[in-house]
Nucleic acid binder design. Structure first.
Lengths: 325, 325
DNA sequence: TACGCCCGCGTAAACGTTTACCATGCTTGT
DNA sequence: ACAAGCATGGTAAACGTTTACGCGGGCGTA
């Protein structure tokens, strides 16, 4: 009963007679032996571990996607290392360093900054990368995300049709594709429909709750406040709604409101909140699949996956100036 | 320039002259060399990695705690492996196996079942365990959780004082300490206050949204439905509220409602929802700290950490039978 | 100048696998 | 009955670190 036999019994890489295999397993059970995956990884040059590096697990978007990634990874025999960057490029860099050092097989990342020299290193190290929701320049890796343009366009049209002439957007950081896309589409569509968007109607946030609060506060303090507000993600929507409630503005009577990212709570609120919903499950599943496929298949880089976001209309937008009877 | 020198230059375990260290780093940078943590782990018998095994990252309680765990682990130089068990003991077992195989240094777990033979193996393997929120029998490991008894007791008293005589509880699974504690305290306190709790007023859920919906549906279908409902966690609260809204029951006029676990959305709802809030940040931080301390310190098992939950009263509970004017 | 010490660095073993290669013994065909 | 072949399992090298040990040279002291 040599080490080789034990290895073969566990991995099944080479045939072992049934009797010996039985004995190996019996003895292992008795001694509490368990194959050491670290040694295995060293020898095999594969850790069966994926890195998931995201700005904020607390953001329901990432929570849900992380869950789907975990499920898909687990199904394919991979474990998941979670890295929360807090939107901090420095922390992100150090996470990439650590994960590379730990020899993860692939990485799913939603980069905090538009350009990441460290990601280039990851690529250089031959570790497959999949971008989630956002991409960084200079790195040739597939992106998995939802295309919000159709839905944002539809939302602006919907608001314009209701008669809104002073719409505001609480946008995401311009360094992120998703932030840029949502703002860009909003502005383009507004222009197309002849709705003016003066600078004070565009407040740049950072996808975090606090910035939503601040933006809403500023908007409400305007001499001529908007009649409709769109928040470019769920956390900022939460902040904006909190601030609106604190200020005593009634939605939708005083102010129409909608947000990017749906929430399980929107349905329950009074009024229920219109939102743009992304296929979170599919996004996470696709990200993990892209990675495992390029790991198993070994073939060339996989294609990007762009799914559609969907506008879910509820009761939070009405015609402007319509006061409760 | 031997391997030993390189190792010493990077780890600093032994002194290396400044000149040589410089040269090592310069060459490493040029060649894109990076120390292999897998080999290091094999040699050192430590992976600087913690396992976090939870039932459902989608549950805001765990999301928030996971975030705090990640932050604390990162601060102390540890990475985090995330395992989502979906409340499935089988998946949990296999996760423990995988994580043990991967030689994680410690594990934080919120077990799906009250008794876990595999956890005993973890203990036997000498891997420190910290229980989060729930504990499993037969394993001598510290627990980090919030004690809900004071808050639940206060809530029952509050409801009784409002005049409720028919209260219902949507409880968690009796296999979990937290589920048992919340139900037990509720019943004890009700009895103490002379409020009867017939069996139909106690609906056992499983901490998931669906079970909250079902429970609320059943409660509303009762011949004499309750005047107040308490959901034993946030997901079931979400389900219950969804069902209530669907059924057209007005809260708080037709039904008072409160839940265990606070939510950022409760404040925003109409009415705002009273809830019992747990110190999520502190729980996560404590769990990670317990683990890293027992890893670094090496001393005996750390003590359990039991923090207090806090009753946050809002507008979702009123006197029963009080119809809107 | 000579001796001993200490500092800095190299050599090599060890961590627990996997696997190419080899030895052994059995089966099979003639 | 004997040779050839095959199934089975053992031997040892390799993966990339860390670290005990040893060696050489520079420095201080007498």
């Amino acid at each position: 009963m040599s080490v080789a036999t034990v290895s073969r019994s566990f991995s099944g890489s080479q045939p072992v007679s049934a009797g010996v295999r039985e004995r190996v397993h019996e003895v292992s059970r008795r001694l509490g032996y368990r194959p050491n995956a670290v040694a295995r990884s060293l020898r095999m040059d594969a850790t069966k571990t994926l890195g998931l590096v995201i700005p904020n697990i607390t953001n329901p978007f990432f929570t849900e996607v992380a869950r789907a990634v975990e499920a898909a990874a687990w199904r394919d025999g991979y474990s998941l290392m979670l890295g929360n960057t807090d939107e901090d490029p420095k922390k992100e860099e150090r996470y990439l360093d650590v994960l590379l050092g730990k020899q993860i097989d692939g990485i799913i990342i939603s980069p905090a900054s538009a350009t990441s020299p460290h990601l280039a290193e990851v690529e250089a190290a031959g570790v497959p990368v999949v971008f989630l929701d956002r991409a960084a320049a200079g790195v040739d890796a597939p992106v998995v995300r939802a295309d919000g343009r159709l839905a944002v366009g539809a939302l602006v049209e919907y608001l314009a049709n209701l008669g809104h002439e002073r719409m505001a957007i609480i946008s995401g950081p311009p360094e992120t594709v998703s932030g840029r896309e949502r703002l860009g589409t909003f502005l383009e569509e507004a222009e197309r429909l002849g709705v003016e968007m003066p600078p004070e109607m565009v407040r740049a946030g950072d996808f975090r709750q606090k910035s939503g609060e601040r933006a809403m506060r500023e908007l409400l303090a305007l001499e001529r406040p908007p009649t409709a507000v769109f928040a470019a993600n769920n956390l900022m929507a939460l902040g904006a709604l909190t601030e609106a409630k604190k200020a005593g503005v009634a939605i939708p009577d005083d102010l129409s409101f909608a947000s990017f990212d749906d929430s399980r709570w929107f349905e329950l609120m009074t009024p229920s909140i219109s939102a743009i919903s992304q296929p979170l499950e599919e996004l996470g599943e696709a990200a993990a699949r892209l990675l495992t496929e390029s790991l198993e298949g070994g073939g060339g880089k996989p294609e990007s996956v762009i799914l559609d976001a969907e506008l879910v209309l509820r009761d939070s937008c009405v015609e402007p100036g319509k006061k409760p009877s």
